[in-house]
Each structure stands twice: as structure tokens, then as C-alpha cells.
Amino acid sequence: MSGILDFFEQHIEIIYLLTFTIFLGFEVISKIPTVLHTPLMSASNAISGVVLIGAILVIRVTDPTDYFALIMATLGIILGTINLVGGFAVTGRMLEMFNKKKRKTR
């Protein structure tokens, strides 16, 4: 129990940031038109590619002789990059098609 309280004490700044960001996320999305559901899902999937940053940060403090950790972290970087780069590229393609359709109807 005291462990949990200590945790709150140590991370109070992060807990504030977390709470406000949750509301921000709700607000930003709440009025989105139905046609944009899929591109938005795809874009937010791409944003979750931020894990790449975490993978870079852990590999930078990894012991260069610890091959298991190095391989795992490199795999993490590859997968994170696929998520990030692929995600934004796919979203770009979706939105491109969206714009073309719109121009045709005009």
C-alpha cells in the first residue's frame, strides 16, 4: 500500500499530465465526421509508433556485450519503425484517395 502512495508522490507531475492529456484526447476527437473514422484510426495507430523512441532510449543504455538485449532492442526498433513509417504512409494513401474522390464529385 505504501508502495502505491510513494508512487503517487514521486510521479505527481506525470499524473497531472496524464489526466489533462486524457481529456485533451477526448476533446480533439469528439466531433469527427464518420468518413474520417478509418483514416483517424490509422493515423493514431501511426502515432503509437512513438514506442520507437523508447526502443532507441533503452538500446542506448544497453551493454554492448549483452547480445540478447541488443537483438531484442534492435527487433523493437525495427517493429516500432514499421509501425511509425508504415502507419503514416498508409494514412497518407487513404487521405489521398479521399481528396481525389472529393475533387471528382466537385
Binding site: 477526448f26 469528439s30 484510426m41 493514431s44 502515432i47 523508447g54
Partner: peptide
């Protein structure tokens, strides 16, 4: 997204935390 935010806490990176939570909460609304 929530996982990315938790990774952000582990590696002490605010952008990960912010991006992850944004994806997490907007994902729930979506």
C-alpha cells in the same frame, strides 16, 4: 497507445507519454 504511454513513463520521455495517452483516449472515443 496506452502501452506507448507506459513505455514513456519507463524511459522518462514526455513525448511518448503525451502521444500514447492521446492515442489511448482518442482511441476510446473513436
Amino acid at each position: 497507445g496506452i502501452t506507448a504511454a507506459v513505455s514513456g513513463i519507463i524511459t522518462d520521455n514526455k513525448l511518448m507519454l503525451l502521444g500514447g495517452v492521446l492515442v489511448g483516449s482518442s482511441g476510446i472515443i473513436l
